[in-house]
Write a protein that binds this DNA or RNA. Structure first.
Lengths: 122, 122, 122, 122
DNA sequence: GTGGTCTAGACCACT
DNA sequence: GTGGTCTAGACCACC
């Protein structure tokens, strides 16, 4: 399910956060769907449960999942109004990435083409 | 010249890398222009020279600058052919970031607006 | 009657305690009025009866309700003399919360505005 | 310096977060002042360093402190614009607490008196 | 020396 | 059985 690079300088829990975020964003994990339990995932990835939990906690703090004691962790339904902080961050990242793309020689047309592709998918 | 956020959880050398990248991308630092020397910059920013050197090393590894022993560091001219790898990576990142922006509730119009802003700047 | 947020990280029984407290405080549940029975409420909210009972026990401990074996639970009439302890606690909490609000940049005017809103309601 | 109740059902790290928040809010710990190091505080309180770190991490997430690898943790200067989320939470808590105070028999005059006291202090 | 990550293993609270 | 907390102890990255 996942490919984690244990040797990477990027912490394992951060890698996990990113991977899971992707799955949620790309709708592989649907709203209110249950994530694998901490222990289960820990066993699958042969990683310490605490590390998994740290990732889940981070995802909860960022508003992507919610956790219920005794029940499990679930994908948090999107409520656009709430994530003002996340939006701000994404806007910054867009600016930065656009600058880099243009620097590397991409035209605005190419960038818009990629954007249009996305529209079709979702 | 720079504004480094000592409070950021991001290591200072990474901030330096980003800032210098921006300057290169936005053509403030032109092709083959000499960057300030490690010592000079260290003094200006009241930061340990080792930190500066680490940033320069990182920029060299990413292909943004080149260093000549005893002469200094210089902005690497862009060569389209070389950057096919970089372009591929950026395209992937664009896709992912677009997906995230849309997930958080941004419209394609908003995204395009940000892109148009960039055009004006460059 | 209630809106419980199953997604909240707050235990359900705590949410129940707060909601019921509010109803009592806002005089929706009058003095000596009978609360719904544990079973009844459990069925209404499709929640485990044990959870309801835990909430009722907590409310009793805090002096908001009293329970009569075989009869049910009832709203405890306020008796000023009894609540000197509660008042002292609330005064402390007010001080602390005011300090926090001011620290975060709220003006005393804003705080008073919120207080005035409350007056209208009750 | 602190009084922690290890037996409390409230987690130790949360107690720590609250205590430290109070110290910051009440200006006992000033802007950019260094907090005790994780290990130091752990030893003082005879608590595991991981627990202290968890508290510090939470405080960082809430914007009250910032941590620098290799340097220490410091009080984050207040920037009113940033804590919109925190303000929202405080407003809710104010409403709730006002309702409770009024229920217990406090008059709005008494509440305002407490607020005025605070003004003088800060 | 500082914060940050990770593991191993224990115990608790909730359902 | 689930997430949450805590401890003990190791190692890494940064300065």
């Amino acid at each position: 399910m996942f490919e984690l690079d244990v040797r990477s300088r990027k912490p394992i829990y951060e890698q996990l956060v990113e991977k899971l975020k992707k799955l949620i964003i790309n709708d592989v994990l649907k709203e209110d769907e249950k994530l694998p339990s901490v222990r289960e995932l820990a066993q699958q990835l042969t990683i310490n449960p605490n590390t998994i939990q740290k990732a889940y906690r981070e995802l909860e703090a960022q508003g992507y999942i919610y956790s219920l004691k005794g029940k499990g962790s679930f994908v948090h339904p999107v409520e656009k109004s709430e994530n003002e902080e996340g939006l701000k961050k994404v806007r910054e990242e867009l600016k930065q990435l656009f600058a880099e793309a243009i620097y590397l020689g991409m035209t605005t047309e190419e960038i818009q083409a990629i954007l249009r592709e996305m529209e079709g998918v979702n």
